[in-house]
């Protein structure tokens, strides 16, 4: 059986600038997939190729066994393209219903499905309005709504929470978490915090190359604790935590945040020992998380 998404020797240049350089990966259906990378890494270009908006110079990519843009994918792949806007001349319902009809639904079913997706993104009250009357966050939610029309098997979201306030971002994360049981999501974002909570697999792009493809590995995480304190003298915290039984090493990652290495097999209760040490020194903590954050994992691998 072919992979859900498969890229082979994918290359894309704009003029003399090589944007994607020999990208190869295979992804399976299931948990959401994160597409991560700094600005200019080639995420949006890869996204555009997956959506069929751009064609690669060389190489090949298949979604659900078909080339992007193929009519076999219409209605099976939904996408939130970056910076795409609705037509300002028609109501939201009118346009979503039209899109649903293009996916093969009849008018009555298309109207019902348009209302369903508008309800999903909490915009049902705005169905008769035009896109120009919506705020930035509402427009983003509307664009996500069109990606969910019908029953897509794969949903590609390019920066779904970029530029949104925390409340809107949270709503969108909750929606993706809820919908990810019905479809496989590929999410491009800079927000590692967000991707860590949503995704099971990561594609890390840098300078047009695929630097890592990995699952968020719990085994890797087992020997780490990430501790965030409310306050505390860094040097003293480092010194005291290093003395805790089972701890190999402690590092201050950023202000009041510490990464603790310990032996997960020989000292599985190190987290309790750390909490006792905090209590004995009167240090209050904000969070104690088993494992490394996604940022720490990526950074550790990128630095060998």
């Amino acid at each position: 059986m072919s992979a859900f998404i498969q890229a082979t020797n994918l290359r894309k240049s704009f003029g003399s600038k090589l944007v994607l350089d020999n990208i190869n990966f295979e992804l399976s259906a299931g948990e959401p997939i994160a597409l991560i990378g700094p600005n200019g890494a080639g995420k949006t270009t890869l996204f555009s190729i997956m959506c069929g908006y751009l064609t690669p110079d060389t190489g090949d990519i298949k979604l659900l066994g078909h080339t992007p843009g193929s009519s076999a994918l219409f209605g099976r792949v939904g996408a939130l393209p970056q910076d795409a806007l609705f037509d300002p001349n028609f109501s939201l319902l009118n346009q979503l219903s039209f899109y649903a009809q293009l996916q093969g639904m009849n008018k009555a079913r298309a109207d019902a499905d348009a209302m369903r997706v508008l309800t999903l993104v909490d915009l049902a009250d705005c169905a008769k309005q035009k896109a120009t009357s919506l705020s930035h966050g509402m427009k983003k939610r509307l664009s996500i709504a069109q990606a969910l029309l019908g029953e897509p098997e794969l949903v590609l979201l390019d920066e779904p929470t970029a530029g949104l306030d925390p409340m809107n971002a949270l709503q969108i994360r909750q929606l993706i978490a809820k919908m990810s049981e019905q479809a496989t999501f590929v999410i491009s974002s800079h927000n590692l915090f967000e991707l860590e909570r949503l995704c099971g697999t990561i594609l890390y792009l840098e300078h047009g190359k695929l630097v890592q493809q990995r699952t968020i590995n719990t085994k890797v995480s087992q020997g780490f604790l990430t501790l965030t304190l409310e306050q505390g003298e860094s040097a003293q915290v480092l010194k005291e935590l290093a003395l805790v039984s089972g701890v190999h090493k402690v590092d201050c990652q950023q202000k009041n945040e510490y990464l603790i290495w310990f032996d997960a097999e020989l000292a599985p209760d190190t987290d309790l020992a750390v909490l006792q040490a905090l209590r004995s020194h009167g240090w209050r903590y904000k969070s104690l998380q088993r494992g490394q954050s996604l940022e720490q994992q990526l950074f550790a691998v990128a630095n060998g």
Binding site: P81, L85, F86
Partner: peptide, 17 residues
């Protein structure tokens, strides 16, 4: 104008060029 606005990207997910 659909190209400039990006609306074509929504359409191209559902219909051929």
């Amino acid at each position: 104008s659909d190209r400039s606005r990006g609306t074509l990207r929504f359409l191209m997910l559902r219909t051929s060029r």
